[in-house]
Design a binder for these strands. Sequence first.
DNA 1: AATAGATTATTTGTTGAACAACAGAAAGCC
DNA 2: GGCTTTCTGTTGTTCAACAAATAATCTATT
Lengths: 219, 219
Amino acid sequence: MRTKVPQDGGRSLAEMVAARIREQVIHGGFSPGQHLSEAELSDSLEVSRNTLREVFRVLTKEGLLRHEPNRGVFVATPDMATIVDLYRVRRIIQVEILEQAFSGHPAVRKMREAVERAKEAREAGDWLVVGSADLAFHGAIVALADSPRLDAFFSHVLAEMRLAFGLLSEPELLHSPFIELNEEILKLVELGKRSEAASRLEKYLVNAERVVLGAFTRH
Amino acid sequence: MRTKVPQDGGRSLAEMVAARIREQVIHGGFSPGQHLSEAELSDSLEVSRNTLREVFRVLTKEGLLRHEPNRGVFVATPDMATIVDLYRVRRIIQVEILEQAFSGHPAVRKMREAVERAKEAREAGDWLVVGSADLAFHGAIVALADSPRLDAFFSHVLAEMRLAFGLLSEPELLHSPFIELNEEILKLVELGKRSEAASRLEKYLVNAERVVLGAFTRH
DNA sequence: AATAGATTATTTGTTGAACAACAGAAAGCC
DNA sequence: GGCTTTCTGTTGTTCAACAAATAATCTATT
């Protein structure tokens, strides 16, 4: 299947190939643990092997691929240890950020938009959009800290979470129960009740971790 | 100056070239903002341009280099915004980790070793080692969280801090006053007084940020 | 039938040359 | 001096080649 990456003014080909593969990894276009052959993929994407290797280095740094010297590159395989670590990271970062949040911050608007979008998508039964909105809500929490480094790091965390969620076939179970909770956290932030919001978020994360680990166990 | 990277059993050439350049960036072998010419550097390191490009992608992701499409790669230039963000990241991550630390954790030993090493190096007047020990102390704090992702992220934070410190010519000012404070934090952790340790660390970070920003202003 | 060792095939890691595209510098014109 | 055009140098990408490492296959032994 030849799928040449179209040119998008301004962006380098490597960037676009990276975006393409990132998208495919996150949305299950490759199997977990799948080996990505340089020769095959460069052929099907119609790019040179060297360009693809640059892309592999970048996506490996983002945690979506795993590079083993002399053996090649594999799609990352989130396992239970991954889930545990991701939620640990989130508990440390998100909770602390919320403890220091202020309600007038522009990112609160993004949190609100994400909650509304999730509710609409739930009515329409579009669980993929619900999931995206849920994760966007959490990215917006991190954006409260005004830290480009934390934003970038957390975007990798979210990408890995999407990858992990993609392994599970229960989007409704993963996201639906948390829409009301997100709204509650949002309201607390809007009211300036930071400690309560942080406490609520921590409970949410502990719960969500349990749910996700449970779903992993059933696989 | 031709400086071929020696072969080191098992590691790929790209990895070793990355390590070489990382070392040079951190220790001031290049000027801040310096443009790194692919042609020149591949020639002087005696590696192919393609290999070097892979390395550039990796180090760019680590924050040590800045890649501008079609213009090339430049050594990162920590400015005051960088310092502000790095300390913000540290306040969010390190303080929260310390709030949850337990005194029996193996990383407490690393913290202790770093403090001892700093004290010895201070006696010997070796401020570079004092600085490394100080940063290792902080890496050990993060290691208390047992999170590979936070460890990796923080190692980049530390590399950027080293780069920033390298711009300043006052190692004594940057590190000496904090050896006793590190020991105090260590003692509190060893005694299980987490909140006090966290509070102490927060004050330290606020102070250190001021000192570093002050030194930047004088440059 | 299972295992170990040898051989073969495939893939990755690296190189170097080539060329198109882009950015910056230099030259020319008003 | 300012603007435009041309030139130069560098980056981005491609391709072909080859060495090294790993995986797959085959053969021999128990």
